[in-house]
Design a binder for these strands. Structure first.
Lengths: 230, 230
DNA sequence: GAGTGGTCTAGACCACGGT
DNA sequence: CCGTGGTCTAGACCACTCA
């Protein structure tokens, strides 16, 4: 209890929670009490407690006071890197090869996922990402030409579609789904592996002000692991 | 620009960034300028900008000022729910059945993952989680009896090991890895599916003050998707 | 050295939500 | 009603880092 900074206070209180000083109910003292205990201002204590609340350690309610979360919500900051960054983080050189590129009508399933109307045009793209010339991931992507007309003419030889979009079109929100899938013939060929292998799939649809920008699925080569701290 | 609250300011500035008002370099005005522009205190502006920095939208450096992140870091708050919660969120009834439970020496691979010494004892546990009597996930777990001696005698018939541990032993940090794996014979049998099916695997090792508590892998039945917003 | 963000303070008012 | 957290303010000092 030296520096009376919001972070030192936060860590100290975290320890006291872990040590079980307060049970799982309503037990914790309020901001004012803790502030005087730590001899800091209420503002500082508020910030420390707010941080603990943000990470799911405690729950705060007006009038109800501050309580230790019965079942702590275990949240992780999962950052979704570019494929290029994933490859380079493994110490390999990234390159990509466009397998297919066309403008076509969107199949019903994707149309629903992206909220497009029948007849809306979109760009379809299949890309293989390589790590030192070994297939690393296979990307199947739809880009709405309603939202991103410029994509039709984008030069994707030097940078990948992912990076082009990230650079040109910010997005406001999106949905991600992770799953496992057996490689069919096309996926097996693209990733230079056997049919039936288990592939890790990451599907992402992103939106800009309520308009779908792109919907993409990445299929990672067998053995891929997405790791992160919690 | 009505309420001059930190959140309204944050959202307004986010819009201006998305609209491209400032390029990808060093362009943004500093706290003081923005504070006077929004007619708020520097404290409030600081909080708004800090929030944008936390979510990876901008980068801040002393003296260097505030800049728009060239490639925004796309971070998601991924909360890892209990299996029971996952099942109940699908509107099904959760139950679990313990398949194996024993105390034994830990194989080298797990020992390394958990940082245990040779000869350390641990509890090994295999559990099948059911959703309305259909296999939903298969859990393979090691619990360090060094860290949690009480686990050896825990009653796991009513609540699962996961919940027992969450209730009894808080943890300070952990590692998570997601991957896809082909079902071998044992997994296929446990999940009542075919050998070779692609399974989604979630592996997690948790620590309490540097001591490994438990290392667990969940294998989800085919078709499982882990979804979250970004 | 100087400018920028990082942080703390003391006080104030407000909004939510139990009593 | 009234206690608790949520927030804003004005001012201050500090620490990092760039020039």
């Amino acid at each position: 209890m030296n520096a009376v900074t919001h972070s030192s206070i936060r860590e100290d209180i975290r320890k006291r929670i872990v040590a079980g000083e307060w049970g799982l109910g309503e037990q914790m003292p309020g901001e004012i009490d803790l502030a005087s205990e730590y001899d800091c201002s209420r503002t500082t204590m508020n910030r420390a407690l707010r941080a603990l609340a943000d990470e799911g350690m405690i729950e705060r309610k007006r009038k109800g006071g501050t309580r230790v979360r019965p079942l702590p919500v275990h949240q992780a900051q999962l950052s979704i890197p570019l494929v290029r960054e994933q490859v380079e983080a493994r110490g390999a050189r990234h390159s990509h090869r466009i397998v297919k590129r066309s403008v076509r009508r969107v199949p019903a399933e994707v149309r629903q996922r992206m909220g497009l109307k029948e007849g809306d045009r979109a760009c379809f793209l299949e890309t293989v990402h390589l790590a030192d010339d070994t297939p690393f991931a296979f990307e199947r992507r739809w880009v709405s030409l309603e939202a991103v007309p410029a994509f039709e003419a984008a030069d994707l030889t030097r940078i990948s579609a992912n990076e082009w979009l990230v650079r040109e079109i910010p997005f406001t929100n999106g949905d991600v789904a992770l799953s496992a899938i057996c490689a069919d013939e096309a996926l097996a060929q693209a990733l230079d592996t056997e049919q039936g292998e288990a592939l890790f799939a990451l599907e992402r649809t992103t939106w800009l002000d309520g308009k779908a920008v792109t919907s993409v699925t990445f299929y990672y080569a067998p053995g891929f692991r997405l790791e992160f701290p919690i």
